[in-house]
Write a protein that binds this DNA or RNA. Structure first.
Lengths: 217, 217
DNA sequence: ACTTCCGATCCTTGA
DNA sequence: TCAAGGATCGGAAGT
């Protein structure tokens, strides 16, 4: 009997792309289109792929999109893969080579996100086809190797607090640890904010001002 | 005080290579030579790297060395990385492209082994230097989740509210108009949020969850 | 991601 | 005890 087709779920934003067209020509694959909350391809319930052209990859570093995207992917799925199409070092864009190496190393070594490089959309499609088979037929049981269970809310909390003036990653974390939740941070008085180390008089009043500022129309 | 040097342990078989020479010129690194039982570089007690020139990589697929080497690396260390120097698809060696893709996919998707591709020995050295720092110190700082911020109060208010899940510019504005201030939005209950047009049941509960989620560590 | 730069915060001093 | 100084940290902007 004919082997059952593998289902690959593709985000609607990718539906027009050449890659996706190529993907549909694989008889082994059943291509479904959906609105994926994060990522571009779902190879199984556990494996998500974000695909970026080389230039996009560089841009997503520069504007910091990459980092939040990766955090979301890790939060939502047990295995996250970034697929880079083309040569990132060839995109002359003023970015330091060490910044690129840093980003790639960060993905692999720190975040544990697999990086897959491809030559062009056709290569990407072929690679996705194979990865889909591996993800669905080759994994089966050993998903356990990602240690801690994902906590997307931690990321979202930090994201929310980093919206405050003068709050970067470090101060955001301190505030959350001190107050215990986003809501507690946002209901704090200027004096309470002042108690957090790293937050001085000036910053405390700036934050408080934003929180209580009466919004006009 | 001066930061302590990072120790990278290099297998003796690699000691003569151009890569290793380049590695020794990094002032941040302290290069130790040893007889490593498996792999070519130890970035920390947990992270091992096997470095292969593109042609070697292809050969190790053909004669099945790759499979056992990876198994041994995984057995001995918690994180294994394969560094491929050069373009594997450029090595005309009769191997089918799909066999290469299969091997790369197998490493990433099934074995959970990170694959790092580099252009040449110098690129490899720079990459190893950065990976070593990441393996031993992590980033050493935290990365920002958002890009740069606006400065005027009303824009700042919107910006703060846009940190909530599913809140773009439009929804943020509606929430602010409805509640009157950032603080009021952040103290709202799920039911109150639901009253705002554009916010449905699902989004209301998501928002509420982020607000009240107890932050860990 | 990395680098550089600047201002705020914090910490030490010494009167 | 507190103010002024300098060392340190964290955020912003640019590549």
């Amino acid at each position: 009997m004919e082997p059952q087709k593998l289902v690959i779920r593709v985000d609607n934003r990718e539906s027009w792309s050449g890659l996706t067209q190529a993907l549909q020509r694989f008889t082994s694959l059943d291509v479904h289109f959906e609105d994926l909350p994060v990522g571009d391809f779902l190879l199984s319930d556990d494996v998500v792929v974000e695909r970026k052209a080389a230039a996009d990859f560089v841009n997503s570093i520069l504007d910091k999109r990459l980092f939040s995207q990766v955090q979301m992917m890790k939060a939502a799925y047990t295995r996250a893969i970034v697929m880079i199409e083309g040569d990132v070092f060839a995109t002359r864009s003023g970015i330091l080579p060490d910044a690129l190496r840093g980003a790639l190393s960060w993905l692999s070594v720190i975040e544990g996100v697999a990086v897959m490089t491809t030559k062009d959309p056709l290569d990407s499609a072929s690679t996705l086809a194979i990865m889909t088979r591996h993800a669905q037929e080759g994994l089966g049981y050993e998903i356990a190797l990602r240690g801690s269970k994902p906590k997307s809310l931690d990321v979202l909390s930090r994201f929310a607090v980093e919206g405050l003036p003068g709050c970067g990653p470090s101060t955001a974390r301190k505030l959350l640890v001190h107050f215990g939740s986003v809501r507690a941070v946002y209901t704090a008085s200027a004096e309470e904010l002042l108690l957090v180390s790293g937050v001085g008089k000036k910053q405390a009043s700036q934050i408080f001002e934003v929180l209580t500022f009466p919004f006009n129309s």
